[in-house]
Design a protein around this nucleic acid. Sequence first.
DNA 1: TCATAAACGAGACGGTACGTCTCGTCTTGTG
DNA 2: CACAAGACGAGACGTACCGTCTCGTTTATGA
Lengths: 201, 201, 201, 201
Amino acid sequence: MADAGRARPGGRTARTRGAVLDATLAELVRHGYAALTVDAVAARAGVNRTTVYRRWGGREGLVAEAVEAFAAGQARVPDTGDVDEDLRRWARSIFDTLATPESAAVVRAVFGGGDSPRLRELRHRWWTVRATLAVPVVARAVERGQLPAGTDPVEVVKHVGAPLYYRLLVLNEELTAAAADLAAAVTAAAAHAGVFVREAS
Amino acid sequence: MADAGRARPGGRTARTRGAVLDATLAELVRHGYAALTVDAVAARAGVNRTTVYRRWGGREGLVAEAVEAFAAGQARVPDTGDVDEDLRRWARSIFDTLATPESAAVVRAVFGGGDSPRLRELRHRWWTVRATLAVPVVARAVERGQLPAGTDPVEVVKHVGAPLYYRLLVLNEELTAAAADLAAAVTAAAAHAGVFVREAS
Amino acid sequence: MADAGRARPGGRTARTRGAVLDATLAELVRHGYAALTVDAVAARAGVNRTTVYRRWGGREGLVAEAVEAFAAGQARVPDTGDVDEDLRRWARSIFDTLATPESAAVVRAVFGGGDSPRLRELRHRWWTVRATLAVPVVARAVERGQLPAGTDPVEVVKHVGAPLYYRLLVLNEELTAAAADLAAAVTAAAAHAGVFVREAS
Amino acid sequence: MADAGRARPGGRTARTRGAVLDATLAELVRHGYAALTVDAVAARAGVNRTTVYRRWGGREGLVAEAVEAFAAGQARVPDTGDVDEDLRRWARSIFDTLATPESAAVVRAVFGGGDSPRLRELRHRWWTVRATLAVPVVARAVERGQLPAGTDPVEVVKHVGAPLYYRLLVLNEELTAAAADLAAAVTAAAAHAGVFVREAS
DNA sequence: TCATAAACGAGACGGTACGTCTCGTCTTGTG
DNA sequence: CACAAGACGAGACGTACCGTCTCGTTTATGA
């Protein structure tokens, strides 16, 4: 958010875009998705309402672009040679993403909002991007013989993230590094035990 | 939902209450929380808007009471003598709760809505009720020696439910019995491996 | 306008109606039809925009009702026994209607505005009401033998009013009593000369 | 409208001007002054909005110039030696001007529009030009002794035109040649009767 | 013929008003 | 005298034009 300025060369258009997206994130953090109004965003960005409608078409477009801009380059793919450590780092990476107030607000906005097609797609993208990154971690472990053959990578990845999102969205508990480590450890233990081995179908 | 009327004795008041709560659930299922309007509920219940505002004070109160009425007696506590089977049945119980369209809509309403204190409390209650029921299952297993001493029951319970809610709220995937079984198996394996053993703190 | 209050007993509704119609006339006088905004009317009436849209549906409905309320009981039908004097008084009556700033503004609004069906009907009513009142004046004169048989009353009435509206709408000249007298005299002279006698058709 | 092209030699500028003025007239005829938008005119003319604002400054300037271009050389001054016939021809000339849809639209635009200074001046010019042309007709008649000395030419001219504009703007009736003849006859009869003789003041 | 000033195209923007939609309060006539 | 029926205040929504501005391109014309 802060350093977005550097990426905005020149024109008024780019300046406007930046101001609006920043304002959107700020409003998201302060009031949440449900209470986010175009007027408030425009006012905070020092921009006319009309401009927002012209370029983003309303609340959804606003959030969609702000989130996409925010989500870019958030996840880190670990490769230490050890599954357990890899999973732990992956969990920590998720934790890092969800721990800051900004991120939490964004995640809540994305996953606690309405059912519009645009939001659906956003959610799907969010997950797809992360799954695409994490799946190889498990695949490599299988190749290295650290996990039993037939282990389903997608399910593993899901079970690492689930407890963290669960805490944030359902339990409303604060996320901790310990929780992340635990989620990774649980999944790792189960994986070693062959629970994720998929029957030949 | 349909036969709920029988459980409500006597007066017009009770009849009104029932009609409104039924209508609220129906609207929740059809349109979701975000698009739920007091007017629509009142119209569907054949009741005046004013009445709804008088008795429930608005959308939130409406949903809160409807959900509480709905949530009563949804969970089943298994006790088969075998942790693995107990956890599996517990997971299946969650699955049953989340699988029907009505339940899914209610859950989405509760956990995908706003941040009002009332909703927060509702979420908290939702979780507390279920945790209270499930914790003894794990406790018993520890007593029986099926799980290592020091196993944290609350964490175990969380990890059973997490993947299911995650699927529903984050991944928007359909829930399956297999997913429930997998969640239970993962948690059980980890528990047997001592992952949930809490260091003396 | 000022004494409209007496005719409004009781309810908030009636009070609102009166305030809005008064405000509409005031705005009409000050800024004219083209520059009349719903917002300004609502503000002046101390009423919410929404209320205006609910009850009058927008600018046109507003003007339509205000004008109708205004137009009620504006014209006087003379019957002195003498055509020339009757026509003169009729012209004076029109003059009285058009001479005050309020009336002039209303007339400009009605006849200088858009082409919507509602305004068209308003114009038609305006004319019809006045024609209905004035036609008997000419008819009586024919019966009395003061005007030749076959004199077309409608055309006579039109020619009395035409120069006055012409001055107001086209020439933007101030209306004078002398102009009204002249219009009546011209029409009377032509009528006596048989110019308005309609060929048997 | 169509042959306006001949008066526009060479340049893109002149071509643009012609296209825009034509488009303005067309929009005026189709939608009337109130609904005339700069955007529509620009689009129809195949010209950019900006160009219109640059050269005409907005809706009013557009209409003003279009109307002036249109109004040039519309009136015909008769001189048959007979007042009655002269007045009749003059009335017919007005009728010709007002009868076509284009002309009617233009007139409505000029006289049924707003109250801006520019439009006021346009109205004044419209009338002045015509009065200047017509006044000599009456003056000659007085010289020839066909009308009484002291007859006020300006009032005569006004009374010829009034019923026709009245029909168009107030009554919204279709103009007919008969109506024009009647207006002339009425005025002529009154003039012969000395109604227009102005007292020495 | 070629430089240069003028006009134009493209399009983002601030601004005003529009007309619509809910929400939640407030008023009122009626039973 | 309570309450259903519904008018009202409040405020966000999304749209349409207005008129301004900037930047780059085209075009006419006279040195």
